[in-house]
Protein backbone atom coordinates (compact mmCIF):
# COMPACT_ATOMS: atom_id res chain seq x y z
CA UNK A 1 0.00 0.00 0.00
CA UNK A 2 1.48 3.30 -0.98
CA UNK A 3 0.68 6.49 0.88
CA UNK A 4 2.07 8.75 -1.78
CA UNK A 5 2.37 7.92 -5.42
CA UNK A 6 3.90 10.35 -7.84
CA UNK A 7 3.51 9.35 -11.48
CA UNK A 8 5.50 10.61 -14.39
CA UNK A 9 5.99 14.07 -12.98
CA UNK A 10 7.28 16.82 -15.24
CA UNK A 11 7.87 20.37 -14.08
CA UNK A 12 9.21 23.09 -16.36
CA UNK A 13 9.88 26.74 -15.74
CA UNK A 14 9.85 28.34 -19.16
CA UNK A 15 12.33 26.31 -21.17
CA UNK A 16 14.11 24.84 -18.16
CA UNK A 17 12.80 21.55 -16.94
CA UNK A 18 13.33 20.97 -13.23
CA UNK A 19 11.77 17.51 -13.23
CA UNK A 20 11.09 15.20 -16.13
CA UNK A 21 9.18 11.96 -15.92
CA UNK A 22 9.81 11.40 -12.23
CA UNK A 23 7.89 8.57 -10.57
CA UNK A 24 8.42 8.00 -6.87
CA UNK A 25 6.36 5.95 -4.47
CA UNK A 26 6.41 6.36 -0.70
CA UNK A 27 5.15 3.16 0.89
CA UNK A 28 2.80 3.39 3.85
CA UNK A 29 4.62 3.73 7.16
CA UNK A 30 8.06 3.62 5.56
CA UNK A 31 10.88 6.09 5.33
CA UNK A 32 11.70 6.99 1.75
CA UNK A 33 14.77 9.09 1.05
CA UNK A 34 15.13 11.30 -1.99
CA UNK A 35 18.79 11.92 -2.71
CA UNK A 36 20.76 13.50 -5.49
CA UNK A 37 23.34 16.20 -6.10
CA UNK A 38 22.49 19.87 -5.61
CA UNK A 39 20.12 21.12 -8.28
CA UNK A 40 18.86 17.62 -9.03
CA UNK A 41 15.26 18.71 -8.37
CA UNK A 42 14.74 17.34 -4.87
CA UNK A 43 13.22 20.47 -3.39
CA UNK A 44 11.19 21.08 -6.56
CA UNK A 45 9.81 17.60 -6.08
CA UNK A 46 8.82 18.46 -2.50
CA UNK A 47 7.24 21.68 -3.65
CA UNK A 48 5.07 19.77 -6.08
CA UNK A 49 4.01 17.34 -3.36
CA UNK A 50 3.13 20.16 -0.97
CA UNK A 51 1.39 22.08 -3.73
CA UNK A 52 3.56 25.14 -4.25
CA UNK A 53 4.34 24.12 -7.81
CA UNK A 54 1.72 22.86 -10.20
CA UNK A 55 3.40 20.19 -12.34
CA UNK A 56 3.46 20.62 -16.11
CA UNK A 57 2.50 16.96 -16.48
CA UNK A 58 2.04 13.94 -14.24
CA UNK A 59 -0.07 13.19 -11.20
CA UNK A 60 0.31 13.19 -7.43
CA UNK A 61 -1.82 10.63 -5.57
CA UNK A 62 -2.28 10.60 -1.82
CA UNK A 63 -3.87 7.37 -0.62
CA UNK A 64 -5.09 6.90 -4.17
CA UNK A 65 -6.71 10.32 -4.34
CA UNK A 66 -5.52 12.69 -7.06
CA UNK A 67 -4.30 15.89 -5.37
CA UNK A 68 -2.28 17.30 -8.27
CA UNK A 69 -4.38 20.45 -8.58
CA UNK A 70 -5.15 20.99 -4.90
CA UNK A 71 -3.90 24.38 -3.57
CA UNK A 72 -1.23 24.18 -0.85
CA UNK A 73 -3.39 25.39 2.02
CA UNK A 74 -5.87 22.56 1.46
CA UNK A 75 -3.23 19.82 1.74
CA UNK A 76 -2.46 19.84 5.47
CA UNK A 77 -6.07 18.86 6.14
CA UNK A 78 -5.45 15.69 4.10
CA UNK A 79 -2.50 14.80 6.27
CA UNK A 80 0.52 16.31 4.52
CA UNK A 81 3.00 18.27 6.63
CA UNK A 82 6.47 19.47 5.84
CA UNK A 83 9.56 21.15 7.16
CA UNK A 84 11.76 23.46 5.16
CA UNK A 85 15.37 23.39 4.07
CA UNK A 86 15.94 26.79 5.64
CA UNK A 87 14.16 26.93 8.95
CA UNK A 88 10.88 28.71 8.31
CA UNK A 89 9.48 29.47 11.73
CA UNK A 90 7.25 32.42 12.50
CA UNK A 91 9.50 34.91 14.23
CA UNK A 92 8.11 37.06 16.97
CA UNK A 93 5.86 34.26 18.14
CA UNK A 94 6.31 31.74 20.93
CA UNK A 95 7.30 28.12 20.46
CA UNK A 96 3.81 27.02 21.50
CA UNK A 97 2.07 29.36 19.05
CA UNK A 98 4.34 28.15 16.28
CA UNK A 99 3.51 24.55 17.01
CA UNK A 100 -0.19 25.29 17.33
CA UNK A 101 -0.19 26.84 13.87
CA UNK A 102 0.79 23.46 12.53
CA UNK A 103 -2.57 22.14 13.68
CA UNK A 104 -4.40 25.11 12.25
CA UNK A 105 -6.44 23.03 9.84
CA UNK A 106 -7.41 20.48 12.47
CA UNK A 107 -9.72 22.92 14.19
CA UNK A 108 -13.35 22.99 13.16
CA UNK A 109 -14.06 26.67 13.61
CA UNK A 110 -13.18 28.82 10.62
CA UNK A 111 -11.04 31.93 10.65
CA UNK A 112 -13.99 34.27 10.90
CA UNK A 113 -15.64 32.36 13.73
CA UNK A 114 -12.35 32.16 15.57
CA UNK A 115 -11.92 35.90 15.06
CA UNK A 116 -15.08 36.49 17.04
CA UNK A 117 -13.67 34.38 19.85
CA UNK A 118 -16.78 32.31 20.30
CA UNK A 119 -17.00 29.91 23.21
CA UNK A 120 -16.76 26.83 21.06
CA UNK A 121 -13.63 28.08 19.32
CA UNK A 122 -12.04 28.80 22.67
CA UNK A 123 -12.75 25.33 24.09
CA UNK A 124 -11.43 23.71 20.97
CA UNK A 125 -8.26 25.74 21.19
CA UNK A 126 -7.69 24.96 24.85
CA UNK A 127 -8.00 21.29 24.00
CA UNK A 128 -5.45 21.69 21.21
CA UNK A 129 -3.01 23.45 23.52
CA UNK A 130 -3.32 20.66 26.05
CA UNK A 131 -2.79 17.99 23.43
CA UNK A 132 0.27 19.69 22.01
CA UNK A 133 1.83 20.19 25.38
CA UNK A 134 1.33 16.59 26.41
CA UNK A 135 2.00 14.91 23.06
CA UNK A 136 4.21 16.81 20.71
CA UNK A 137 6.13 19.21 22.91
CA UNK A 138 6.83 16.54 25.49
CA UNK A 139 7.86 14.06 22.83
CA UNK A 140 10.36 16.47 21.33
CA UNK A 141 11.50 17.76 24.74
CA UNK A 142 10.34 21.25 23.96
CA UNK A 143 7.98 21.70 26.91
CA UNK A 144 10.41 23.81 28.90
CA UNK A 145 10.74 26.22 25.97
CA UNK A 146 7.03 26.56 25.16
CA UNK A 147 6.77 30.24 26.06
CA UNK A 148 10.04 31.44 24.56
CA UNK A 149 10.09 33.27 21.26
CA UNK A 150 11.43 31.01 18.55
CA UNK A 151 14.17 33.29 17.27
CA UNK A 152 15.85 33.16 20.69
CA UNK A 153 16.38 29.40 20.54
CA UNK A 154 19.59 27.79 19.31
CA UNK A 155 19.63 26.38 15.81
CA UNK A 156 19.16 22.72 16.70
CA UNK A 157 16.13 23.50 18.84
CA UNK A 158 14.62 25.66 16.11
CA UNK A 159 14.80 22.65 13.81
CA UNK A 160 13.01 20.64 16.44
CA UNK A 161 10.29 23.26 16.78
CA UNK A 162 9.78 23.08 13.04
CA UNK A 163 9.44 19.34 13.31
CA UNK A 164 7.00 19.72 16.20
CA UNK A 165 4.93 22.13 14.14
CA UNK A 166 4.78 19.60 11.32
CA UNK A 167 3.75 16.89 13.77
CA UNK A 168 1.07 18.95 15.48
CA UNK A 169 -1.37 18.08 12.73
CA UNK A 170 -0.65 14.34 13.19
CA UNK A 171 0.21 14.01 9.51
CA UNK A 172 -0.01 10.79 7.56
CA UNK A 173 2.77 11.96 5.29
CA UNK A 174 5.69 13.96 6.63
CA UNK A 175 8.07 15.70 4.24
CA UNK A 176 11.45 16.52 5.74
CA UNK A 177 13.69 18.76 3.65
CA UNK A 178 17.27 18.27 4.88
CA UNK A 179 16.36 17.91 8.56
CA UNK A 180 19.96 17.75 9.77
CA UNK A 181 21.56 20.38 7.53
CA UNK A 182 24.13 22.34 9.50
CA UNK A 183 24.00 20.09 12.55
CA UNK A 184 26.90 18.50 14.37
CA UNK A 185 27.26 14.76 14.86
CA UNK A 186 25.37 14.56 18.17
CA UNK A 187 22.51 16.69 16.90
CA UNK A 188 22.29 14.58 13.77
CA UNK A 189 22.09 11.39 15.82
CA UNK A 190 19.41 12.89 18.06
CA UNK A 191 17.40 13.94 15.02
CA UNK A 192 17.74 10.50 13.42
CA UNK A 193 16.44 8.88 16.59
CA UNK A 194 13.52 11.31 16.63
CA UNK A 195 12.59 10.48 13.06
CA UNK A 196 12.57 6.77 13.87
CA UNK A 197 10.55 7.44 17.02
CA UNK A 198 7.99 9.41 15.06
CA UNK A 199 7.46 6.51 12.73
CA UNK A 200 7.26 4.03 15.56
CA UNK A 201 4.83 6.10 17.59
CA UNK A 202 2.45 7.29 14.88
CA UNK A 203 3.21 5.09 11.89
CA UNK A 204 3.84 8.21 9.84
CA UNK A 205 4.98 7.82 6.24
CA UNK A 206 8.13 9.86 5.89
CA UNK A 207 9.67 11.34 2.79
CA UNK A 208 13.15 12.64 3.43
CA UNK A 209 15.59 14.77 1.46
CA UNK A 210 19.07 14.37 2.84
CA UNK A 211 22.67 14.81 1.81
CA UNK A 212 24.18 12.92 4.71
CA UNK A 213 24.65 9.50 3.15
CA UNK A 214 25.31 7.84 6.47
CA UNK A 215 21.97 9.00 7.75
CA UNK A 216 20.16 7.97 4.56
CA UNK A 217 21.71 4.48 4.80
CA UNK A 218 20.73 4.11 8.45
CA UNK A 219 17.21 5.48 8.32
CA UNK A 220 15.58 4.77 5.04
CA UNK A 221 13.72 1.71 3.86
CA UNK A 222 13.71 2.92 0.32
CA UNK A 223 15.81 5.38 -1.68
CA UNK A 224 15.07 7.32 -4.86
CA UNK A 225 17.95 9.02 -6.63
CA UNK A 226 17.42 12.15 -8.69
CA UNK A 227 19.93 13.60 -11.10
CA UNK A 228 19.30 16.52 -13.47
CA UNK A 229 15.56 16.23 -12.83
CA UNK A 230 15.36 12.54 -13.67
CA UNK A 231 14.87 9.67 -11.32
CA UNK A 232 17.87 7.50 -12.19
CA UNK A 233 17.36 4.71 -9.67
CA UNK A 234 15.13 3.46 -6.88
CA UNK A 235 15.63 0.63 -4.43
CA UNK A 236 16.88 -0.26 -0.98
CA UNK A 237 19.81 1.69 0.46
CA UNK A 238 22.10 -1.31 -0.12
CA UNK A 239 21.13 -1.57 -3.75
CA UNK A 240 21.77 2.12 -4.22
CA UNK A 241 25.15 1.76 -2.58
CA UNK A 242 26.11 -0.81 -5.21
CA UNK A 243 24.51 0.92 -8.19
CA UNK A 244 27.30 2.24 -10.45
CA UNK A 245 25.13 4.91 -12.08
CA UNK A 246 24.17 6.29 -8.67
CA UNK A 247 27.70 6.23 -7.43
CA UNK A 248 29.07 8.09 -10.42
CA UNK A 249 26.21 10.63 -10.49
CA UNK A 250 26.12 11.38 -6.84
CA UNK A 251 29.49 10.62 -5.42
CA UNK A 252 31.60 11.39 -8.44
CA UNK A 253 34.32 8.76 -8.30
CA UNK A 254 33.45 5.12 -8.97
CA UNK A 255 34.09 2.68 -6.16
CA UNK A 256 34.32 5.26 -3.37
CA UNK A 257 33.10 3.99 0.01
CA UNK A 258 29.63 5.16 0.89
CA UNK A 259 29.05 4.64 4.56
CA UNK A 260 29.58 7.67 6.75
CA UNK A 261 30.29 9.96 3.87
CA UNK A 262 28.85 13.41 4.40
CA UNK A 263 28.00 15.87 1.70
Amino acid sequence: MSALEVCDLTLSFGGISALSGVSIVAADGQITAVIGPNGAGKTSFFNVVSGFYRPTAGRVLLDGRDITALPPHRRPALGIARTFQNIALFHGMTVLDNIKLGAHTQLQTGLFGAGLFLGHARREEAELTRRIQSDVAGFLELDTHADKEVQDLPYGLQRRVELARALAARPKLLLLDEPVAGMNREEKQAMSRLILDIRRQWGTTILLIEHDMGMVMDLSDHVAVLNFGRCIATGTPDEMGRNQEVISAYLGEPGAPLAGQAA
Binding site: P72, H73, P76, A88, L89, F90, G102, L111
Partner: peptide
Protein backbone atom coordinates in the same frame (compact mmCIF):
# COMPACT_ATOMS: atom_id res chain seq x y z
CA UNK B 1 4.81 30.79 2.10
CA UNK B 2 5.17 28.84 5.31
CA UNK B 3 1.78 30.01 6.52
CA UNK B 4 0.37 28.68 3.28
CA UNK B 5 2.08 25.33 3.88
CA UNK B 6 0.56 25.19 7.37
CA UNK B 7 -2.86 25.28 5.79
CA UNK B 8 -3.59 28.92 6.49
CA UNK B 9 -5.76 30.35 3.77
Amino acid sequence: ITAYAMGIN
